[in-house]
Amino acid sequence: MAEWFYFFYTALPAFLNGALVTLELTAVGVLAGFVLGLASALGRVYGGRWLRWLAIGYIELFRGTPLLVQLFLVYYGLPGLGLTLDRMPSAFIALALNSGAYQAEYLRGSILAIGEGQMMAGRAIGLSRWQTIRYIILPQALRLAIPAWSNEPVSLLKSTAVAFLIAVPDLMTRAKALAVQTYDPIGAYIAVAVIYLAMVYVLDAFLKLLEERARIPGYSVEGKKA
């Protein structure tokens, strides 16, 4: 046990650098994915026929195929189309596209849950369709989405480990390097598991806080009095 702590201690700087890369991948994936997801959710709910089909196509394609395949297609496949990207940008793009498809479904569900009534009430005072979406529907739908949506950042944080397979220097890649260097794969992978666990724990706490902060007084999902 003591040995393991010593190992962990000496490897810490490498792990921290890796953890930063992992966090960066997660943050970019979640944020860019959010923009993509929101746009596709809106397109799917409110768009005309073409926009709706475009959104459905994107969502189904990226939810229906493995993230790893998507990553390889971006990194190894795009050069074939004359677009060569570095490792990090490739990972960013694949993660964002993948996460966007999942986030779209969470957001779509909560937009639909807000219901037609709010749209009608918004239109009735003279707000345009887009204004009603912007000021009435989305502020409620986004809050409503948080509990279920919170799975996505946590899940994506762990999924970023696939970036290891195109040698992005993330946490997983560092673990592998240390495992080889020290001939102690168990120690290395346990250490990396502990770090993932800690990051998930902190992220979860942050998301809980967000959920608490966004609560509408007197209003809960079922529309009952809180």
């Binding site: 009534g117 709010q118 009608m120 009430a121 918004g122 239109r123 009735a124 005072i125 003279g126 707000l127 345009s128 000021y135 009435i136 502020p139 409620q140 809050r143 509408i216 209003y219 529309g223």
Partner: peptide, 28 residues
């Protein structure tokens, strides 16, 4: 939209904007 704001409407199930205070519901 212009016409609609000159015709007020009150619904059976109120349909207040749930994320806004009473004041903001009236202000928006």
């Amino acid at each position: 939209d212009e016409c609609r704001q000159r015709i007020g409407m009150v619904f059976q199930n109120f349909l207040l904007f749930n994320h806004l205070t009473a004041l903001d519901n009236v202000m928006i």
